[in-house]
Design a protein around this nucleic acid. Sequence first.
RNA 1: GUGGCUAUAGCUCAGUUGGUUAGAGCGCCGGAUUGUGGUUCCGGAGGCCGGGGGUUCGAGUCCCCUUAGCCACCCCA
Length: 447
Amino acid sequence: MTPLSLIPPRTLKGFRDHLPESMLLREKIIGIARRIYQAYGYAPIDTPALEYEEILIGKGGAETDKQLYRFEDHGGRRVGMRFDLTVPLARFAAQHIGDLGTPLKRYQIATVWRGENTQRGRYREFMQCDFDTIGTQSIVADIETALVIHDLLLAIGFDRFTIRINNRKILTGILETLDLLDRATEILRSLDKLAKIGRERTEAEMVEACGVSHKQANQILALSDLAGSNEDILDQVEKLTADSPTGLEGTAQLRQVVSALEAAGVPNSRVRLDVSIARGLDYYTGTIYETFLDALPDIGSICSGGRYDNLAGLYTRTSLPGVGASLGLDRLLAAMEEVNMVEKASTPAEVFMVYFDAERLNDYLKLAADLRAAGLRVELYGEPKKIGQQLKYADRRGHSLAVVAGSREFESGTCQLKNLRSGKSLALSLAGGPDELIATIHKQLAE
RNA sequence: GUGGCUAUAGCUCAGUUGGUUAGAGCGCCGGAUUGUGGUUCCGGAGGCCGGGGGUUCGAGUCCCCUUAGCCACCCCA
């Protein structure tokens, strides 16, 4: 039965399908993130995609309320889809911190939704990989956060990247001395654009949009003029913040983080003090992190975060300070594609098994099962087609090795192991079971 | 949300001032004496020219609407 008119298959604006080739890479990165987070003792949690609307609104400004996907559910409840993982974490902490105790180290890798306009690397459905340490003021958590970012990018395969670090207290201190604290949000927003639009225009915007004087704007922007080694910058910052206890505290914290990172073996080239990064709205109160790929600074920060004084103040009277960061998986993947870090394979199975002799199906199945039992991923071709076609398929899909066996091999109790990269094949005996084959496969994969 | 650009084969794109059966490269499928892929050669399939409406004797080409993508602004928990 053919319908009169077909439904056009299509996806919503900002929502995408993920094909095997890109999905394999996604899952690989997610796996690395899990491994690194767990290596530092962060434990996984998950929260619902849907929350009560009242949980989600109010935390951000009118802008986020506009971007929130919200509707009435079948029971007449006002609900919304989570647009980040921080607000659900806040609610989660308020609800469960009594059971879990502090400090709580958790990570969450999940999809979020924002009804904002799309652009390259910006979608309406995307994935975040958050990790946070909550319930502690200790600077150790700030240091570990940076270490995790560092280890994570390294494990993914990046070599040249820069973690920019700042401390919000420095800026707060300077605004305090200039008596501009009440305009902090607007000023920060302008300051955040510095790298993008340049110093002069930033100054002009500060004067225009925030109503500060040229002199005040210059004093704020003096922070961005600092140059030299991290040590030099810290010394200069200390002078600039000399009149403010808050500013001095921030400077001291920053100094401690930077020296700890060096002691932990993070190369200096990958850590840069950047006292002009402001990171969003007035959410953060201490250390701030932004991570840029040296080859692709334009794509923006791929891993950002910071310290906050009170995560869950909207939901509980328990004060929960913390620090954390988030890897923007989709932006990262876009970057990896751009710098050609994606290896092209659309199969997860390293071993391909040619199904050549239709009479011997059971033998193929048995051999494949033996290999899988040894932890290998094996795809047996589904039809006894011509061997050339099967190898062509294996080649296109990116299998590394092919096991070739026909009546000739079965009769002599052997099989061929063909390396699809080099084209060379080895004849191996199956007389003593699959062990020799398995050992050879492992050896070839290791090369 | 505002503005600009774009939409033609699976992908990247040609397509003259509107004019007959819309092309290329790559990919895909098949073949080159039937047990060995990536190179080469030959052949083949595959297009409501994003969708809808309009102008015209005639629209892939011009106009309007719509959907989607890219860019800028905005914003970025």
